[in-house]
């Protein structure tokens, strides 16, 4: 088990962003979490990378528990995760190479090993020719590929992708989803939050639906038919 939510609730003031969530993710699994805007998808993600801690219940990720997480352990947990955001969140003053190298550099990897890994990954992602470019010089699809490369560079246990196709056109979105599926096939657990679960072919992933902070059965979810 790489992620486990045990009866997790999260309140902002009195407003329930998540309520009594129970969720398990196995190693190498592909989980798609869908639901409308404001359903709590991003909040659920924040609990996985422990940017937020639950108001009640326990989150366990890659062996770290929200009940006992110390300040020193937080960076160690995050090094086991790769995170991709809808708005890419690349560092604008760094080149593609430096953005991708960042997780290895903060973990104290030797420059030689960083260079080897980053070059190999950029080649794999067909971004080698762009390694000296700055994010503003890239297309949206290229920026998202760089963000995925940065998320994958340190061999994470779990890849979290929060609406990664939200800012991309359908063709580029399809390619990004294919890339996520390929990453999953290599053994990395992937959690994808999306408005549109139809992007992922049936049978490839497990689907879950969030509605107003509750995980609901897909068939009982009112919005399912409208997707």
């Amino acid at each position: 088990m790489v992620v486990s939510f045990q009866n997790v609730s999260r309140f902002y003031n009195d407003w329930p962003a998540l309520e009594r969530i129970n969720l398990q993710l196995e190693q190498g699994e592909f989980l798609v979490i869908s639901g409308p805007s404001g359903a709590g998808k991003t909040t659920l993600f924040r609990h996985i990378w422990m940017g937020d801690l639950p108001s009640s219940g326990t989150v366990e990720v890659a062996g770290y528990s929200s009940d006992r997480l110390s300040r020193k352990e937080l960076p160690l947990l995050r090094r086991k995760l790769g995170i991709v955001f809808q708005d890419f969140r690349l560092l604008p003053e760094r080149t593609v190479y430096d953005n991708v190298a960042l997780p290895l550099q903060v973990a104290g990897t030797s420059p030689k090993a960083v260079r080897r890994r980053v070059f190999s990954l950029l080649a794999e992602m067909e971004l080698n020719h762009r390694r000296g470019s700055y994010p503003h010089e890239l297309s949206g699809g290229e920026q998202q590929r760089v963000a995925i490369a940065r998320a994958m560079v340190a061999h994470p246990v779990i890849l979290l992708a929060d609406e990664p196709t939200g800012n991309l056109d359908p063709e580029v979105s399809r390619k990004v989803i294919e890339l996520l599926m390929e990453i999953n096939r290599s053994g990395t657990a992937v959690v994808l939050a999306t408005h549109d679960p139809r992007q992922v072919p049936a049978g490839v992933a497990r689907f879950m639906y969030l509605d107003r902070g509750h995980l609901v059965n897909p068939s009982s979810w009112d919005g399912y038919e409208q997707l």
């Binding site: 990378w49 940017g51 300040r71 020193k72 960076p75 160690l76 947990l77 995050r78 090094r79 995760l81 995170i83 969140r89 690349l90 560092l91 604008p92 003053e93 960042l102 997780p103 903060v106 973990a107 940065r150 340190a154």
Partner: peptide
Amino acid sequence: ALTVQIMSIVGAPGWF
């Protein structure tokens, strides 16, 4: 702030 946030998210320790 974005630089600080990203560094923190990719697992940089506070001192780094």
